[in-house]
């Protein structure tokens, strides 16, 4: 997928926002791909974590706004433990999620949960799921 990277497409405010929310200097990422190799969710992602990092570095807000990867991330912290640059990718993923969720957008709708799933599920699933996936 070719993307135009130019002053026209780089959204610097988005980059600032991600930096503010995550507290991480994502420019340190040197695209080694250790995160992608460590992620347990790899086969379910539309973008590898490394690609998410690249898109953030280039302020590609539009692409990240429709990306599934941040919402498939389970915050397991494996990438963070292994990142040779010491970046906390879980915080960066959270920041990308929050940029969207804070516009009052829900990734999942609590009221649309199947009654039988709610009956089966432990409370901790809903508490954590709503935290991560609802606004």
């Amino acid at each position: 997928m070719a993307r135009e990277i130019s002053l026209k497409t780089i959204d610097d405010r988005f980059r600032q926002k991600i930096k503010e929310i995550s507290g991480q200097n994502f420019q340190q990422c040197f695209q080694c791909g250790t995160c992608s190799g460590s992620c347990p969710m790899t086969e379910h992602l539309d973008l590898m974590p490394r690609q998410v990092m690249a898109l953030i570095q280039f302020g590609q807000a539009d692409a990240l706004d429709v990306a599934k990867t941040p919402f498939v991330c389970a915050s397991c912290h494996t990438c963070m433990v292994r990142c040779p640059r010491g970046l906390d990718l879980t915080k960066i993923m959270e920041a990308v999620r929050l940029v969207k969720l804070r516009r009052n957008v829900n990734e999942i709708e609590p009221s649309n949960l199947q009654p039988e799933d709610v009956t089966e599920m432990p409370q901790v699933a809903m508490v954590s799921g709503f935290r991560k996936l609802t606004s």
Binding site: P40, H44, T78, E107, I108, R131
Partner: peptide, 19 residues
């Protein structure tokens, strides 16, 4: 030490099942 998929059972239940 791998992740069970945790809360993705809500968002991506198939992915959680697989991991």
């Amino acid at each position: 030490i791998q992740c069970c998929g945790t809360y993705q059972v809500l968002g991506n239940p198939d992915a959680a099942l697989k991991v």
